[in-house]
Design a protein around this nucleic acid. Structure first.
Length: 514
RNA sequence: GGGCCUGUAGCUCAGUCGGUAGAGCAGGCGGCUCUUAACCGCAAGGUCCAGGGUUCGAAUCCCUGCAGGCCCGCCA
C-alpha cells in the first residue's frame, strides 16, 4: 500500500469521481444556468393552504438550491434544499424519475451540492411542503463536504478565515449581513430624502487628516510618492462645502493602522455628512430621525421582542448630558477640566488607563471620560460640548468658554456618531492644527497619531466655507447596535486575520536544554 | 502590549492517574416507497497545531513557537 491518504482528501476524491462519472454518462457537471427557477419560499407559500397529501395538479415548478441532506428510503428519498429565500425538500421517487434517473440522482448527489429540479408542488402525507421531482440536475458539485448539519461551523477561526463556509451553513449569519445591507440602503434613502447628495472622495492622499489615527502608508510608483490611506472623510467633504455643494454625504471605507478588537477593525466603513447653514443642533435632530428610522429598518432581521425593545430605545428625543457635568458627576471631582495636565495624567493612570507621560490635557481628559462616563451610557444619549483641545475641527462654543459645539451619540457604552458645528475660520483652524502637533520634546514614536496639518484644507477655508453642521457615524457599529451583534467581526464579511505561517520546524530557543 | 482559555477524523466533540485513539454527523458498502438531526447492519477514516524536553512509555507533564477566543489597556 502507498502512503496514508488523509481522509479529507479521500472525501474530496470521492466527490470528484461522482462528478466525473456524471460527465462520462453525458451529463454536464457545471451547466450554464437554470432558467425559470423560482425561489423555494415562493413554492412554500403557494402550498401554504394545501392539506397534507395533496398536490397542485398540473402545476410544474423549477427550483434550485444547496442540498442539505439526503434521506433515502429505498425507492423514495427526501432531499431538503436551501436557497437564499429559505428551505424546501425535494421528494424523489422511482415512480417519477424512472429506475435510471432515480439511481443517477442518488449516485451523484451529496450534501452541499447545488442542484436544480423540476416537479409538482405537493404537501406530503406528513404535511411537509415539497417538490415531487420529475427531473433533477447537478448545477455544481461540492468537492468539499459542508460542516456538520446540526451544529454547523463552530470553530471561530474557521468562521472568519472561510466566511463562505460560515455563510453557506448558517442562515442566521446570512441574515445579519442582509440586515447590514438593509441598514445601509435605508441610510442612503433617508439622507437622499433629506436632500443630501452622495459623493466619492479619494482613499489615497498625501495627508491622512480629519481624525486621530495612525495611517496606512503606501507608495504610488508613477508619481514616485508615498500616499496614505484616509483615516476620515471629513476634510475633502468640507472642501465641497467651500465649492458650493450644500448637503453632501459619503459612505466609504477608512483605514486606521491600529488594533483589532470587538469594536475596532483597521478598515471600517464610515458615513459622514456635511450640511451648509446648519449647526450641530440641527444635526442632532437629524441623527434622532435617522437612528429612529434605522431601528425600524432593522426590525425584520431581529426576534420580535428585541426589535421592539430597540425601536423603543430609539424613540426621540434622546437624553443629553453635558460633557463636563457628566465627567464631574461620575468621577466625583469638581473642576476636573481645570486641573493641570500632569494631574489629569495621574488621575487617568490611577483609573487604570495606560497613558504616556506626554499625553495632552485633552487626551487625558478623554481617557477619564471614557473610564468614568462612556460605559454607563447604555440608552441612546448625546454627550454635548467637548473641551476645546480635544477637537480641532469644531467651532468654539457660542456660550461655553473653552468648549466646542460637538456631540457624540452613545449606545450600550459604544460611540455611534460624532458631530460638530464645523469650524470655518481659517485662522482659528490653522492655530488649532498647530496646537495638535505632537509636543516637541515628547518623542515616543507616536508622531503620526495627531490631527495631521492639512495645509490645503486651511487654504480652502480661506475662500470661505459656509457655517455648517457635520456628522460622522461608524457604519459597522451601527450594524452592531441595530442588529444586536457583540463583535464588529460579526458585521464585517471578511475581517482581517493573521497569515498562517508554514509550520516547519521552529528553532528551539533553548536548544538541547539539558 | 498584559492576563486567562482553546487547538484531537472533513465537521461537532469525548479522552480518567502518563500505558500507545473514541463517539455522533458526513463519506463507503448493504437494507428499507412519506422522511424531518430518518432508521437498521457492516467496514473504513488520525501530522492528537508545530518543534523541543522529561519518561521505559506523552494527546495527557514541562519549555518555546504558531493560530484563535475572552478580559484589560487604546484608536471609532
Amino acid at each position: 500500500m502507498g502512503p496514508v491518504v488523509p481522509s479529507g482528501e479521500t472525501l474530496t476524491e470521492e466527490r470528484r469521481s461522482k462528478r466525473d462519472r456524471l460527465k462520462a454518462s453525458g451529463g454536464l457537471a457545471y451547466p450554464y444556468g437554470f432558467p425559470g427557477r423560482v425561489p423555494l419560499a415562493s413554492v412554500r407559500s403557494e402550498l401554504a393552504t394545501q392539506p397534507p397529501g395533496s398536490e397542485l395538479a398540473g402545476v410544474s415548478r423549477r427550483v434550485a438550491g444547496r442540498v442539505q441532506t439526503i434521506r433515502q428510503h429505498g425507492k423514495t428519498a427526501f432531499v431538503p434544499l436551501r436557497d437564499q429565500s429559505g428551505e424546501l425538500q425535494l421528494f424523489l421517487r422511482v415512480d417519477d424519475l424512472g429506475e435510471k434517473g432515480y439511481q443517477t440522482a442518488l449516485d451523484t448527489l451529496d450534501p452541499g451540492d447545488l442542484v436544480g429540479a423540476e416537479g409538482v408542488p405537493v404537501v406530503t402525507r406528513r404535511g411537509e411542503p415539497s417538490i415531487r421531482a420529475t427531473s433533477v440536475v447537478l448545477l455544481a458539485k461540492a468537492l468539499r463536504p459542508p460542516p456538520e448539519k446540526w451544529h454547523g461551523l463552530q470553530d471561530p477561526e474557521a468562521r472568519l478565515r472561510q466566511r463562505y463556509v460560515d455563510l453557506l451553513s448558517s442562515p442566521e449569519v446570512v441574515r445579519t449581513f442582509e440586515g447590514r445591507s438593509a441598514l445601509v440602503a435605508e441610510m442612503r434613502r433617508y439622507l437622499s430624502a433629506q436632500g443630501f447628495q452622495e459623493v466619492e472622495t479619494p482613499v489615497l492622499g498625501r495627508v491622512a487628516s480629519g481624525g486621530l489615527a495612525h495611517p496606512f502608508v503606501t507608495h504610488y510608483r508613477f508619481l514616485e510618492e508615498d500616499f496614505r490611506l484616509r483615516v476620515a472623510l471629513e476634510l475633502p467633504l468640507k472642501r465641497l462645502l467651500v465649492g458650493g455643494m450644500e448637503r453632501v454625504f459619503e459612505i466609504g471605507k477608512v483605514f486606521r493602522n491600529e488594533d483589532l478588537d470587538a469594536d475596532h477593525s483597521p478598515e471600517f466603513t464610515m458615513m459622514e455628512l456635511y450640511w451648509a447653514y446648519a449647526d450641530y443642533t440641527d444635526v442632532r435632530k437629524l441623527v434622532e430621525g435617522l437612528t429612529q428610522d434605522l431601528a425600524k429598518a432593522a426590525a425584520p432581521f431581529l426576534p420580535k421582542e428585541e426589535a421592539e425593545a430597540r425601536v423603543r430605545d430609539f424613540t426621540p428625543p434622546y437624553p443629553t448630558v453635558d460633557y463636563v457635568e457628566a465627567l464631574e458627576k461620575e468621577s466625583g471631582i469638581s473642576g476636573i477640566v481645570e486641573l493641570p495636565r500632569e494631574r489629569l495624567v495621574e488621575l487617568a493612570r490611577a483609573a487604570g488607563a495606560k497613558v504616556p507621560e506626554s499625553m495632552s490635557h485633552g487626551g487625558a481628559l478623554d481617557k477619564l471620560f471614557g473610564h468614568y462616563v462612556e460605559s454607563r451610557l447604555v440608552h441612546p444619549t448625546f454627550v454635548l460640548d467637548y473641551p476645546l483641545e480635544t477637537t480641532p475641527l469644531a467651532k468654539r462654543h457660542r456660550s461655553k468658554p473653552g468648549r466646542v459645539e460637538r456631540f457624540e451619540l452613545f449606545y450600550r457604552g459604544m460611540e455611534l456618531g460624532n458631530a460638530y458645528s464645523e469650524l470655518n475660520d481659517p485662522d482659528d483652524q490653522e492655530e488649532r492644527f498647530r496646537a495638535q502637533l505632537p509636543p516637541p520634546a515628547a518623542g515616543g514614536g507616536e508622531g503620526e497619531e495627531s490631527y495631521a496639518y492639512d495645509e490645503d484644507f486651511v487654504e480652502a477655508l480661506r475662500y470661505g466655507m459656509p457655517p455648517a453642521g457635520g456628522l460622522g457615524m461608524g457604519v459597522d457599529r451601527l450594524a452592531m447596535a441595530f442588529l444586536g451583534r457583540p463583535s464588529i467581526k460579526d458585521v464585517i464579511l471578511f475581517p482581517p486575520t493573521r497569515s498562517l505561517k508554514s509550520s516547519g520546524p521552529t528553532p528551539a530557543p533553548g536548544a538541547g536544554a539539558s
